[in-house]
Design a protein around this nucleic acid. Structure first.
Lengths: 336, 336
DNA sequence: TCTCGTCTTTGAAACGATTCATGGTCTCTC
DNA sequence: GAGAGACCATGAATCGTTTCAAAGACGAGA
């Protein structure tokens, strides 16, 4: 059924090795033969078998990327950046969505390892440092994305989440707010925890300011809406006057819940700042202030580092940390 | 460097074939040996080489999925549905984003073919029927997603775009609007063209109604904003009183452009209906009316059909067409 | 004791590509 | 006319797994 290089060789009247040469180093083959082989390929509809190729080569020409949530535009932007960079190097990106579930994260890492990928980009979920270091020890480079490698045994490309959290809350406080709520995803996600650390720092620096934490089960629009409804259900006096959301999806859900009821005005009653500055942030009911991350650049940079490490395994791990940037829109306007 | 099944066999004091049996049909191997082999695997940190496996098997255990735009939540939902279904069958999904570019679409198809995937799910861009039929003839099943296979030589899972377009515009007309604009993506994308056909039908059925077409270069938020700015720049009298956008991303961009200027009120001056009903639709400046598609179900169904065809290549192609559903929100409220 | 059947294990062949040492031609130079 | 060098093509070995015919071990029944 399947056409192999052998059939092509026979048809073109040359040896298998020659066909392979035509495909991979055409300069070593005479022109006449090159075109004869190409004809045969076309006539037979031959398609290279990548499995055989990889087997011989000992590794694939793909890299793996595991993200926390493929539906979050922030991660699709990272993926886009990685793909762009990968395309330039003739490498494909296999995308895995861990959906914030450790077992899915593990399954994708297993899969990538079996595929002998060139390397793995991970936006890690739980504590899988050990797993990743083992991977690296076995010769598969690993680069963390959107999270720093604390102990510097791995490379990472991330954003200063603590600074981001600090900036966000400092901005809210500067607008005159004092009772801040941090609408959070699972604290086990490091990025979330770091943003809270920054938020607390800003609060600590401002006399009279306080912060409470509302921990959601996921970083999603739905979860944001749920937490928003909790807030609306409170007596007005017990509501915060400012909310810092751990990411824009939560913030969007929050906005929906607050504004739809009509009971809470944004930003008059509650100011909101999100995180990520996804494309939709400027299109929401009340345009959303947010902390912008250079998502595409993160993906690009991570992939570049990954390929460099694949090239030279002796390279020392590097930590790249970008600084996030506050984008002010209506949702965090000054106290009315 | 790499540990192979051979090393495991040696360590466990058995033959290679036995190790393979332990991995694939443990019931044929005595318990004592099974555990001895598992110990060896653990001690050596053995990981199966998928390339060798595939080579022997003649095909991979993945399927390919090519979408028009991985940043569009509609397609990530389709992907999610496909992944869910795939996971149940122990199959992985390789995601390719054609980014509305025919050459990228082709590149992904080439890649998938070289990988000998079990099958391919495509949301096709240009006219690649021939290419896809060749693929299928070579033994790789193909299922079209989000687009019907006109000549029924391939299976497809889609939504009735004509009906969707008709419903959307009929709804706008029923609200008293008469001068409709279709804010479109490239007409070469079949879904876009079909939605316009439906829109025209609705207009034709209503005396006094007219429709104009604004063709954008892509189905993106950015492009929607650009077209929106074009509309705002017109003298008020020349603006349409209703807009049907080819998808929600365009609609969101449009909304941004119209509302931000403050010159055009939605829905008072212009009513808007989008298409896809993405999660964000209900969170926009003015909550967006839209035509809902069962995106996740589309992905699931497509993958199921694909696997069935992979199982039995003789199966006749099937066309599954879902009916879309109008979701009315504020953006298409009645004429003020 | 011999035969037959069951249960395990073995080892070699096969999948399809790439690589590389080998050998054959041809041309050029002295 | 011989030797050297450049240029091409060859084909066997190899990658790591799975499969399958065959062999070995063992027990039961005659």
């Amino acid at each position: 059924m399947a056409i192999s290089i052998r059939d092509v060789a026979e048809r073109a009247g040359v040896s298998v090795g020659t066909v392979s040469n035509v495909l991979n180093r055409p300069d070593r083959v005479s022109e006449a033969v090159v075109s004869r082989v190409h004809d045969a390929i076309r006539e037979l509809g031959y398609v290279r078998n990548d499995a055989a190729r990889q087997l011989r080569a000992g590794r694939s020409s793909s890299v793996g990327l595991v993200v926390l949530d493929a539906r979050n535009p922030f991660f699709t932007d990272i993926a886009r950046g990685a793909e762009d960079e990968a395309a330039e190097h003739g490498v494909a990106v296999l995308l895995g969505d861990s959906d914030e579930k450790p077992e899915r994260e593990g399954a994708y890492l297993d899969l990538f390892e079996e595929q002998r990928v060139r390397g793995v980009l991970v936006s890690p979920l739980g504590d899988i440092r050990e797993r990743l270091e083992r991977l690296r020890a076995h010769g598969t480079p690993v680069v963390l994305v959107d999270r720093i490698a604390e102990d510097a045994t791995l490379s990472s490309v991330s954003v200063d989440d603590v600074a981001g959290g600090r900036t966000a809350v400092a901005h809210l406080l500067a607008g005159g707010r004092r009772r801040v709520a941090f609408v959070s995803g699972p604290q086990t996600i490091r990025q979330v925890a770091d943003r809270l650390v920054g938020a607390r720092e800003a609060v600590a620096a401002t006399p009279g300011a306080s912060i409470e934490v509302l921990e959601g089960a996921a970083l999603s629009v739905l979860e944001g809406r749920r937490l928003g409804e909790e807030l609306v259900a409170r007596p007005a006096a017990e509501r915060p006057d400012a909310v810092f959301a751990a990411n824009d999806l939560l913030a969007v859900g929050l906005l929906q819940a607050l504004v739809m009821r009509g009971e809470v005005r944004v930003p008059d009653d509650v100011a909101i700042v999100g995180f990520d500055d996804i494309d939709f942030a400027s299109a929401t009911v009340v345009p959303l202030s947010s902390i912008r991350q250079p998502s595409r650049l993160i993906g690009q940079t991570a992939l570049r580092i990954l390929l460099e490490e694949a090239e030279d395994p002796e390279l020392a791990p590097r930590q790249v940390v970008f600084q996030p940037e506050l984008v002010v829109r209506e949702s965090s306007g000054p106290l009315g």
